[in-house]
Design a protein around this nucleic acid. Structure first.
Lengths: 203, 203, 203, 203
DNA sequence: CATGAATGAGAGTTCATTCAT
DNA sequence: GATGAATGAACTCTCATTCAT
């Protein structure tokens, strides 16, 4: 069984290798550059080898999405350590936006890329994403419970805040801020974040 | 002379036919499916024929974007008729969101699709889009002038509102609302719109 | 019949128009650029119109070749005015080379371009070319008759001189003189012409 | 190890197969007929397969040219064994012409075909060609040194002889000898070669 | 007389994928 | 376990040519 385990481990390592290559390609040259050939070439294996570890291209993309979801979770979840729900919420938001700014490619993959049907099938990824999302809504709920908002419509509050954050990041990621000079974009995003926080206090 | 006009009209109709086919393909199968061949096949012409009406593929994409921008303008600009700036702003927002909900494909093309270089070149489209955007910011400015907000940071206010609206629509368009049951999504969007309006009053 | 004549003349003018356009394209951008479409575009007629005046593309190329042959004849034949056969021969050679240098494109068409079978059919062109060629061989014959050469093998003498001249021009036309600096090529050609003349005196 | 060698050999064979097909197409139907698709069809492989052995079309053309240059060198260089420079020069010329007559397609590729940019880039081919050319000019120089000519203008002498040989071959290759009956052409070429040799003695 | 409209054929190239070894 | 070899299908684009009007 030692042998089986070793094999298992080696298999896992190879999957990692492939995934890292895919991720690198995706980051550096965009989704279109993530081709089996390119991956194979960049890890110096033959294209056929890839198929020993992943059924097809879409399975790789799924894995990539899972990867992105994990990175996002790690980036965002430290907020959970904060006890005060309002501060926790604000920190969560800040971290969410920060993740999007720092990893526009991963954010894209998670929240913008038109998923080629795998998203639904990709149970793992979905579960992971939902966990974070639940944490978010529960934090809002906690704020509601502790009367940080006048409104008690937790769902709508959470959704509204998400809309803003997502809009903020995705205008950035998909380069729809060209009417603002490059150097002002970051600043504007920060100001807007501050503003939505302010606004939230009066929901 | 009648003949020339007829020819002209027929040419225009053919361009429409091509554009509609392209749009349909984009809507149904995404940008990658918008190939000259697919378009040709779907309108039952030969690929070469397409080139009689559009110089190359990017010209089609440009036309598509311009189309989208025009439809959006027509959808949104009736708000301009309203005199009171605050009401005008709200109506504008409502129409913006409504446009996105009714024409997710066009919205996608304008604000989400990673533009393959055409967007910048496509001066017309950019100009058109900027005109609408200016109307939006000027309306915000009018609200600021008339003390509808405590804040006087017009730019940030406008941007924040846009973020929310864009987030709202694009989560919808790119199907990131699967955690909410289908039939609730529209309602949630409406509630959120109402909420941001409320929140805006206390900026 | 005045009408018929006019029609005839107009037809001829149109053929000229087409031919000139073809020639211009050929000169400026090479044989590959001589496409029916390009010709049509450059004279602002439709491609279909071309076919009213020329059966197909190869007929145009034939006409072009005839054209080239005529220009060549006009360039070269003034030598005929010289009475002394040896001087006439030298002048003919000089003019032949000069034609090639001044009209590399036409020379190419006449003596290098792989004729797509039309050359043989193109009786006119052939006849014209033969007339000039005959003038050349007759001049050599005259030199032989008047003992300008020791050898009496007129055919070989003529052919040998032609080989040199053709080699000279065609190395130039097809850019096989890259081992010589650009500015020296013309000079080298002239020196070589002088040398062959010298050499010819001792045939 | 044997396996690697075998693979290597098979790969080389395939490259040969492709090259031969390309050459055949070039010979039989001209440069324009040398398309990836034609090559593929003629060796009964799919077009995509070609790309496993050659990066792109221009690489094939380069290989073709290099091939031609190598064959030419092998055909011509045995002359180097002759010690007496004049005899060496004559033998070189004879072999040059002989190469052109026996391999009109290769000669065409090297000295007539309008090189589509590859020639310059194709350093190897250029180097190889230059080596042979240098051998030629050095032989002429040796003749000059040993007073085989009255003239001491090595460059012009070499160039003049080349012009004749090139003219001789290329009139033949591009079929501009139609005014001479087929069966006389070879003979005429030989006579002309003999004549230029004679003439050279009196340069 | 002229042409607008159309097309089949063909160009170079890339991709995901399969399969025998 | 790994891969070399191969391919069918797809891509954008250009061309000579035809034909009804």
């Amino acid at each position: 069984m030692g042998i089986i385990e070793r094999k298992e481990r080696e298999k896992e390592e190879m999957r990692r290798l492939i995934l890292d290559a895919a991720l690198r390609l995706f980051r550096e040259k965009g989704l279109d550059a993530v081709s089996i050939r390119n991956i194979a070439e960049s890890i110096e294996y033959s294209p056929a080898t890839i198929y020993l570890y992943y059924k097809d291209k879409s399975e790789i993309l799924s894995a990539l999405q899972y990867e992105a979801a994990a990175v996002k979770r790690d980036h965002v979840m430290p907020a959970a350590a904060i006890e005060n729900p309002w501060e926790r919420l604000v920190e969560f938001g800040r971290r969410y936006v920060d993740f999007g700014m720092k990893h526009p490619d991963l954010y894209d993959l998670l929240f913008i890329t038109r998923a080629p049907m795998e998203f639904i099938e990709n149970q793992q990824c979905w579960t992971l994403g939902m966990a974070v999302h639940s944490f978010f809504t529960e934090t809002v709920q906690a704020c509601v419970d502790q009367r940080y908002f006048k409104s008690t419509d937790t769902e709508t509050i959470a959704y509204t805040l998400w809309c803003h954050a997502h809009g903020l990041v995705s205008l950035f990621v998909r380069e729809r801020m060209r009417m603002y000079p490059e150097e002002k974009r970051q600043e504007l995003a920060q100001k807007s974040f501050a503003m939505i926080v302010k606004m939230a206090e009066s929901i």
